[in-house]
Structures are given as C-alpha cells and as structure tokens.
Amino acid sequence: MSTVGVALPYPILSPLFIDGPVNGFTHWLGLDPKLLLGIAIALNPLGILLGSVVLGPMSDRYGRRRIMLGTLTLAIAGYALSALALFGENYPLFALARFATGLCEGNAAIARAIAADLHPQIDKTRSFSMVNAALYIGWLVGPLLGGFLMPFGGWVPFVVAAAMMLPALTLLAWLVPNTGAKVDLSGRGWITFAREQHALRLLDDVEVRRVFWLQLAFTFGLNGFYEFYPLWLVEFARLGPSGISWVTAGLCLLMTLMSALVWPRIGPRFAPLAAASTTAALAAAGFAVLATGARLPGLAVIVLLGLPLAVYGTSMPVYWSQRFDRHGQGAVMGLLSTTFCLANVAVALIGAALILLDTRLVLALSALACGLAAWRLAALRRDGRAAAATV
C-alpha cells in the first residue's frame, strides 16, 4: 500500500509539463517545461539518496519498525504538501515537497533489511522476491490509479497517495516487530550516529567498492529507463496519462509474476552473479531498441523488460546480503539503495540536458551503462570461480 502511494503520481508528471496548460507552474520563471520536469524528477531521488544513506544504518541501531513509522508519517505530510503546491500552481513549493518526500522514501532499504532478518527461516531468494513483488504490485496499481485520476486535477493523485499510506502505517505499527534494535552504550545521539555510521562508510571495504561501481553503472542505465520511458511514450508512441499507465501496468505485472511466482521457485538453482550478468545484458539490449525510437517494438520491449529486471532486482540484493553480512544488513541494504539513488540523481540531471536534444540519447546512454555492468559482473563471477579453484 505504501508503494501504491509512491507510484500513484508517477505517470502524471511528463504529460503535465509537456502537454499541460501554459501557466506559472509549467513555465515557472519562463523556463523550458522539459527543464522544470527534469528538476522535479531529480529532486525526489536526491531526497531518497540522502535518506538511504542514513535510514538503513539507523534501523540497525533503533530498530526497523521505529524508523519506518517515522518516515511513513513524514511521507504522508510530503504528499499533502505536493498536492497543495499543485493546486496553488506553486512550482518552488512542489519542488521542495518532492525533495522532502524523497527523504522519507529512502526507507525501502529497511524493508529489504527486514527480509534479510528472516533468514534462515525463509530463504533469501524467496524473501527478497516477495519484497520486490510487493513493490512491483504497488507500481502496477499506483500508475493505473494516477492515470485515471489525472483528469480530476494534477493534485488529486497526491491526495490519494497520502490516503493510501495510512493503512500501511497502521499495519506497520500493529504487525511488524521492531527487529534490528541494538543497545548503544556510547551515548551518541541519533544525529551523531547518522553522521558517523552512514552507509557510505562501507566503501572503505575494497570488495564492497568494486561491486558498488558496477552496480552504479547498471542502476544508471535502469534509472535512465525508469525516468524517461514515460517521456518516450509521449513523444514516440503518442500516449497520454492513461496509455502510460497501461504500459506501466504491463511492465509491473510481468515483474510481479516473475518475483512472486517464478523466481522464488527456480532462483535458488542459479548463482546470483550469473543471473545478474545475464539479465543486465538483456536490459542493455532492450534499452538499445528503445534508442531507435521504433514505436511498436519499443512498446513490446518496455513491457517485456519486466522479466529480466525482476530477476536482477532479486539477485543483486541476495548477493550483497550474503557477501557483505559482516557490515550489518541495514547498512548493506542502505548502500544498495544509495547506489540506486545516486544513479537516479545523475540520470535526472544528465537526462534533463539530453532530452533538450533528443530523448533517445538518454536511452542509448542507458544501454551503454547496462552493457558495461553486464561485462563487469561476468568478470567478477570469473574472478570468484578462479579464487574458489585455488582454495
């Protein structure tokens, strides 16, 4: 339910800025609507980035449920503020609200840490697949609702998004145990703890740093797809909010089916790195097709990409959780989310410039980034097998 709230406004931003009315919101200070769209897209993941850096490690100390409750409450307030800004056609307030909401949405790392806490009672491939399936269901339902609510006003989806998070807040307080909490005898306050124990400290580990860079390359390509395929659909497939919602629903449906029904059964048979390298290569090929601008093949590819992306989305968290458990699951999942958000911010900023030239350039760059990641993942796998053979 929380993810439905996050995903619900997703399909409205591109049509709002590109095909929306000419007013003080879509043409604030006389700036190009595409530039304003890029800034609005970038600020939310920038907030998620900063939140991911500290929320995961904080859950290792204060407990998963406690941090989740606080962040969900603040996210509800952020969506209400976004709705108010849209209703009043106040772009600066909207940008501020999107950034503040993003700070709280960095709690996805905590959900994955809870899944890791369930091991060995539940196999990690299965638990991470279930978490991802729940996320994908949210991305399936949310954009559909957003697309259908758009005709009632751009601010309406944000109000509904806030309302959708209220049941999630209730269930979290009622059902989820406060796992991960530890006694800290140092007497440090939470601000000091966040400053000293943030997820980026894991990069001092050479092995973590190597995997971080290839993961950053893949998530750069992935975010280029996620952030700009709605604009591709507007420009090259000539779809509106409802059409974008249906395509997104197809994509998320395949991701959900793969994560909930298929991969939990067959995934444990495959090494995480082998699955990740193969699916990264498939993603690169799909993004390359979109870069051609071909309408019908592009529509099919966007939906079918749900299969390899779902497998990759489970395989890498399993690898990170198993390989770097010594650093604490909250911190490890926090760094994984931070990597995604760093790439998201970079793509939004670079993409905001590239779409002024041609939207297809972003997708071509995404294909290159995922191809690089696939190559490095294959090399990492070979190195691992070579090291095992010498033992």
Rank of each mutant, 00 (worst) to 15 (best):
V289A: 06
P167C: 10
P15E: 15
V54P: 03
T390L: 12
E227C: 01
L200P: 02
Y229M: 14
V301C: 08
P9N: 09
N178M: 12
Y136E: 12
C104Y: 00
V347P: 03
A168T: 14
L16K: 03
F148M: 10
L103D: 02
G24A: 13
G47P: 09
G30Q: 09
D358K: 10
N223W: 14
S59L: 07
V234P: 00
L43Y: 09
L171Q: 08
I39Y: 01
A173G: 15
Q215G: 15
L81R: 02
P15I: 15
A7F: 13
L365N: 02
P57S: 07
A42D: 03
A364C: 07
L257Y: 09
W190S: 13
N223V: 05
G47D: 06
R201M: 08
G153Q: 07
M68T: 06
I137P: 02
G88N: 11
L214T: 15
A346S: 13
F87G: 02
M255L: 08
T26Q: 11
P308M: 04
F236S: 11
Y229H: 13
A352H: 03
F236K: 14
F236N: 13
L144T: 06
R210S: 11
A80P: 00
R269Y: 09
A113C: 09
A40L: 14
A275F: 00
F270W: 09
A40N: 12
T278D: 09
E227L: 15
A181Q: 14
L222S: 05
D383R: 10
G221D: 10
L16P: 01
S245E: 02
S315C: 09
A283V: 13
V318Q: 03
A7T: 11
N44Q: 11
G221K: 07
T170V: 15
A387N: 13
F225R: 13
F87A: 11
G102M: 10
G293R: 08
W375A: 14
A80C: 07
L36F: 00
G70C: 11
D184R: 01
W28S: 03
T101A: 08
T390H: 05
L31T: 03
D117T: 05
A77P: 00
I122K: 01
L202R: 07
P230E: 13
A97Y: 04
L31H: 06
L307W: 04
A85S: 05
L231V: 04
F218Q: 14
A111D: 09
V332D: 03
F17G: 08
A111N: 12
G286S: 10
I39H: 07
M150T: 12
